[in-house]
Amino acid sequence: MSSEATTGAVASERPHRPHDGWRKWAEIAFFVTPALALMALFVAWPIITAARFSLYDWKGLGPLDDFVGFENYAEVLADDVFRDAVAHNMIIVVGSIIVQLPLGVAIALLLNRKMAGQGVLRTLIFVPYVLAEVIAGVIWFQLLQPEYGLVDALMNGIGLSPPEQGWLGTPEVALWVVLAVLTWKYLGLAVLLFLAGLQGVSEELYEAAQLDGASWWQTQWRISIPLLGPTIRTWCFLSMIGSIQCFDMIWVLTGGGPADATTTMATYLIDEGTNRHNYGIAGAASVVLFAIAFVMALVYQLVVLRRDTKEAAV
């Protein structure tokens, strides 16, 4: 309150009082324009363009004049490959959360104690997250090579038989293998964020629980996990947004194959756009991808994250 008053006093002491309104807007424009201009040109404009492309049959040559209305959408939505791609995205969204959430919470709870080497442990767990998806993908591609790869060698060593076409070459297992590699890559982020959330839980709560004779399990179940709620919900959101855009890892590991068993919406639209020059189809797929991501984000925000803001308000 007092600082407001001071600012007011400063303003009234200024010599050019009448110009202050104009000046303020000029200053705001000076600071904000570069960022907004860059985003308008390289974020907003391309997205609008994708939506425009989606209404035309355009192969990248000549003017954009073959208007087809919603035909591209009809084609995309009727395409089994695209439908499967949406399903694969959903499997990755749900699978990532189902696997990483309990594992991440469990590991974070285990590591959330004073122990020797904790710093080193955290760093090591975070290593896969720091690597580029491409680099992680190439390493796993080598590990998973049929016959010569380490995974097959280890399995043969203990008498198990890996799939004949290789892990990434067998349509029935390829998507699950990709999901496993994604889990490997992103589990560290979940652990790290959950650990950070646990650091925020006040020490007194644990002490009080211990004095009341609560067991370690009771303390974790009744105190740590409920208080981790907001962090978990935010992590789920980040994970969902990442899964819906999934591209790099799949492009490196399988390229969407075998037999389109691992396509996602992003690999589908890149394939249509760059390899086949079906810009209309790619545009329609982009809009569908954006619509799905947007609706998911909105629903999640309204249903799940609102609880956090409400709770904070109460």
């Binding site: 974020v43 404009w45 994708a50 947004i241 992003a266 810009y279 991501a293």
Partner: peptide, 14 residues
Amino acid sequence: LFPAAVAVIPLFIL
């Protein structure tokens, strides 16, 4: 919220 993948093809042309 805007996935880069959505914009990538028009971005390439731009």
